[in-house]
Design a protein around this nucleic acid. Sequence first.
DNA 1: CTTGACCTTCCAGTGACTGGAACCCTTATA
DNA 2: TATAAGGGTTCCAGTCACTGGAAGGTCAAG
Lengths: 129, 129
Amino acid sequence: MNISEVSARSDLPAKTIRYYEDIALIAPGRDANGYRRFSEEDLHKLTFLSRARALGFTIEDCRALLALWEDQSRASADVKRIAGEHLEAIEAKIRDLEAMRNTLAHLVAECAGDGRPDCPILEGLAQEG
Amino acid sequence: MNISEVSARSDLPAKTIRYYEDIALIAPGRDANGYRRFSEEDLHKLTFLSRARALGFTIEDCRALLALWEDQSRASADVKRIAGEHLEAIEAKIRDLEAMRNTLAHLVAECAGDGRPDCPILEGLAQEG
DNA sequence: CTTGACCTTCCAGTGACTGGAACCCTTATA
DNA sequence: TATAAGGGTTCCAGTCACTGGAAGGTCAAG
């Protein structure tokens, strides 16, 4: 497969795939003309990366997960630990965003949104403490 | 005020405050020795920036909001539009993260987390479609 | 006079790409 | 056979919002 085909099948931009090769997450072969040639296994890895990234895992998390994925003797506890830590981080992020949303929704609701200069949003952002 | 005092009072690192001067969000004066001297108004702006950034507004949003804040003749509708767009973006982000959390929580719950190599988390990440 | 805390500038790096320039390879068509 | 379109390649620079560190100037206390 050439890069455009794995790009379409893995749902990753070609640029991103080249970047993943740069940082040694994948190591596709090369044709005589210098084009990258991707195996089914390369595609499988890229699909894995695509989904793990979509779940918000960092590249370094992905690197660790890929290594575990390829390691026949790994313990599922290792994977569960990484995923569990990530789950907690996601939940913390959700709580943060909900706090932001509540504050902002409150400010927006109070704002008349007309031509008058009085604006509770700016006042809310300006007040100290 | 010197930088460390505004830093403490605005809850922004000194580095960040210098950066905000670099990108022309603030323009503090200078003492004879070259130290930045911050006025109450500078502090007020920094507090404003600190809170707006904590609510997830981008720097460019902040620049627009600061300009509106300083503009006596602005309409609150302008502010409401910026804040409303941002509110929608936050809500979309929360929905994304909740989807991630649900998928991941499901995978983690299925994983035995023991020494065995079978791991539903990796299988879930590997499956296509 | 020295110590230590504070301030300055400037340069480089972060994460995870993304855009663009400049160029090579392949295939189809006039 | 020329050429044009649509692949592919590398490399460099930029994004965002800082952050770290080096190298050095300034100030107050003991």
